[in-house]
Design a protein around this nucleic acid. Structure first.
Lengths: 141, 141
DNA sequence: TAATCTGTAACGTTTACTATTACAGTACAA
DNA sequence: TTGTACTGTAATAGTAAACGTTACAGATTA
């Protein structure tokens, strides 16, 4: 699975725990263990889709824009990883009935698989991720 | 998605359409559009798991060993791609409650996602793939 | 106007994937 | 019993995708 997906979840969870103030990309990247520019790319996508708001300049950063219960993992998957399940087949032999049609057949099956996965991911909201994270206490974040 | 998975499906489907004779790795690789050695690696895995039989030497090759209805896409997924859904997170910050626990939380969620995907993939047998392929006629394979 | 932040493009590096070469082992056929 | 046609697998090389890093323009505040 695409790591943009997990970085998006990580970022949103982080922001969900800081509902009253702006968080910088550096703070989030420090939590996630990646480069701030990488986080900004992911956050840029989240912003474009209305999940978060941002502000430039001193005291700026990112903040959650929606209710935690409104955002599901499926929503995040769709903007970061849609089509990721789809395998990238090499061009197979058009003169063989298998080679000529396998791609089409598998494409439909994987499309169904992604829809099916969607039903599972819709059951998880950011609120629930936050709750699961909170079940571990005693950290100093 | 891992392309070993689709190459395995491709190979088994090819063999399913040649039930009475051995097929060489070259014939299959020609159909799939990849190098014969690559196909042999995938077939080696399928053989180890009892899906196919092989024979070396002149007139040798590979042949299906089970009933087409016995083998599901989930069976194939398990031997070629198990864990593929699991994202490879970078090591996140242990001092942050999010960084410290995100990996564990997501691991469980993706484990569930894979199980869920399994329920979908179990519905497709090689027999059904063959039928779908056969719905297109007029090729000279 | 200096400091701090976002936003994004460009470039370099690393890692995973795939192709290719090479060759040993097996089976058959003449 | 020797040549031919396969499998089986390791080792290497090449390619593409992922990721890190640098650089800098634009926004905002003190």
């Amino acid at each position: 699975m695409n790591s943009d997906f997990t970085l998006a979840i990580h970022s949103l969870t982080y922001l969900a725990l800081q509902p009253d103030r702006m968080s910088t990309s550096e703070a989030i990247s420090d939590s996630a263990g990646v480069h701030p520019v990488r986080i900004r790319k992911v956050l840029s996508l989240l912003k474009k889709n209305g999940f978060i708001k941002s502000k430039e300049g001193i005291g700026g950063g990112f903040i959650f824009a929606l209710d935690l219960n409104e955002v599901t993992l499926w929503d995040i998957y769709k903007i970061t990883s849609e089509g990721a399940l789809q395998p990238k087949c090499p061009d197979s032999n058009e003169k063989c009935i298998v080679g000529a049609n396998m791609h089409t057949v598998l494409f439909k099956i994987f499309l169904g698989a992604e829809e099916h996965l969607g039903e599972y991911l819709k059951d998880y909201t950011i609120k629930e991720i936050v709750d699961l994270i909170n079940q571990c206490k005693g950290c100093d974040c």
